[in-house]
Design a protein around this nucleic acid. Structure first.
Lengths: 220, 220
DNA sequence: ATGTGTGAAGAGCTTCACAGCC
DNA sequence: GGCTGTGAAGCTCTTCACACAT
């Protein structure tokens, strides 16, 4: 099971993405290579985790030396199907939508917000971030003409199911929602809900039954 | 390993919380009891998952009948250390901070935002949602006097490490951050970062290598 | 008959230890 | 010496099947 042939664990997918940001920093610092230990320290994980993760997408390193940073970044992006910019649309230009549209980081990370929609007449026509807000009435048509791959749904809870349905109808199969309610979607559409309440509940629970974290490799 | 004596899996903690919302709906509909099958259908999980999850926090059901909804909610909240409202402070009243402060749902779910802070003079004194924005200079003192259990950090990336340090110093040991950079925190502080880029990367990856989801019990 | 509770089997991820290469 | 790559062991969570209670 080597060189990207087999199955990659979900957790590895997440970590591979999380390596990208530190790797960009390392690259900007001028380093040509990076070792699993260095990267592991930055990310607060075990070095063998890093090596195992990379082994799923190929034998990318050089023994005794480490990994070529530039090649590594390339390989990770390829493995994550992240070669080209991901085209995104934001539906709902309230506080959250606005925050996203004005968020400069997305651009650097390979996400491109190509359209924003709202149903409120006074918002349509406004320019927020890089885009001009469009009327939600044109949603399906515009999602297709802009070849949108992923839609962020940041509308009031009551509108979410309807928006979700329309997004699904338009053929977009990735949705990031800020509504915790389970949006009924066709099987081919993947929905992820950002549920801050859940995150907070988890934090509260773990703050009672404390747990520490360990790092190290071999000789701990 | 029964009746809350043993260890509860992390995934079970998450799911227990996610059952609360549907259970409130079921309660409001007037149902006295609910079966693992009903709840499983609403949450799109396997009924045996539901039963297993509940078994970690006790033998709460009645064979042949189901679970008493009201007791179930009580038991879950107790298990999650969620008996009383969780006292929260928001630091940074930009788009995201504002969205959180105006979010009515938190109140219903047992989270109480008791304070908000910003360093900008024109924001200090404004009332947003239920609270009046205070000067971030008083952060540590006020976190303690309000007995804040969890802080949401919604400040610009550049300020985040400083805010995080001060929050840690004030003795708060749960932080929800909107900055993806790993905040260096003492071991006793739990930090969760909301990383939308990661969520989107995951969606994009899985939209290529599609996977369906199955539900059912026993006879599939 | 209906629906819970749970041991045991199974799947998936992590950790370990060390062989292999520079 | 230094560091990668990886089988194997270990651990955790999930699924299954069925005994048991109403």
């Amino acid at each position: 099971m080597s060189v990207g042939s087999g199955h990659i664990p979900n957790e590895t997918i997440d970590r591979l993405f999380s390596y990208l940001r530190p790797l960009m920093c390392v690259l900007n610092r001028g380093s040509v290579t990076v070792s699993s230990r260095e990267l592991a320290e930055i990310c607060t994980v075990n070095p063998s985790v890093v090596r195992k993760d990379f082994s799923y997408i190929g034998s990318l390193g050089t023994r005794g030396v480490g990994y070529n940073v530039r090649e590594l970044i390339e390989s990770i992006r390829r493995a994550l199907k992240f070669d080209n910019d991901i085209r995104i649309a934001v539906v709902g230009v309230g506080n959250i939508g606005r925050a996203l549209l004005e968020h400069p980081r997305f651009g650097f990370e390979g996400f491109k917000i190509v359209a924003a929609f709202d149903s409120s007449p006074e918002k349509v026509g406004q320019t927020v971030g890089q885009v001009t807000v469009e009327d939600a009435a044109d949603l399906e048509k515009r999602l297709q003409s802009e070849a949108v791959q992923l839609v962020i749904v940041a509308v009031p809870e009551i509108c979410a199911p309807d928006v979700a349905r329309r997004v699904g109808d338009a053929g977009v199969n990735s949705v990031l929602s800020f509504t915790p309610c389970g949006l009924a979607m066709p099987d081919n559409v993947n929905v992820t809900s950002v549920d801050l309440s859940l995150e907070m509940a988890r934090l509260v629970y773990h703050s009672c039954s404390q747990e520490g974290l360990r790092i190290g490799d071999g000789a701990a």
